[in-house]
Amino acid sequence: MNFFRLLGDLSHLASILILLHKIKTTRSCRGLSFKTQALYVAVFITRYLDLTYRWVSLYNFVMKLFFIGSSCATLYLMRYKYCPTHDPSIDTFKIEYLVGPCAILALIFNYKFSVSEVLWSFSIFLESVAILPQLFMLQRTGEAETITTHYLAALGIYRAFYIPNWIYRYFTEGVVDPIAIVAGIAQTGLYLDFFYVYFTKVMQGEKFELPA
């Protein structure tokens, strides 16, 4: 564990708490992509299968349980409790275009051709693009509630913090994880447009609105 990774994990944790807070307080999942949330459930379940057979640390164990549990809870809230507030007609990104290529990439790029390693690779690739249905939806509506933009910012910043963590680990421990690094840089890259609007508008107290 190092400072950058801890900041990244705390940012990830914060993003989920902001998301649940938004759903609970506004009693609505308006502006949220169900597809993106469903992809996160797939990401966490395929990556954290090792919970059942490998012990890393108490921190690791608790965080994994939290990510699986909270993503399932979010999906439940969106699907059942606040279902009427979700508008599927604007959540139209085709996730087949994400899941298919990620599965193929995982079969090609993995550290060992075993079920658990291929699923791990798959989860890394899928996570890097899982935000696309959400960003696509944002693009279509052209605006977002401020709380939703805080959620997206925290979620984007989380992976960005992992980048200095990998550089730090390379110099201190000599470990390199090329799959996670390439996917992590791509994932952070997808947020650049969003970050630009977030930092120039939302952080200055303005509403999140995309130029027409």
Binding site: D50, E117, D177
Partner: peptide, 10 residues
Amino acid sequence: LPHFIQHDEL
């Protein structure tokens, strides 16, 4: 296992 497949990150 080589170092890079430790998967000790989240």
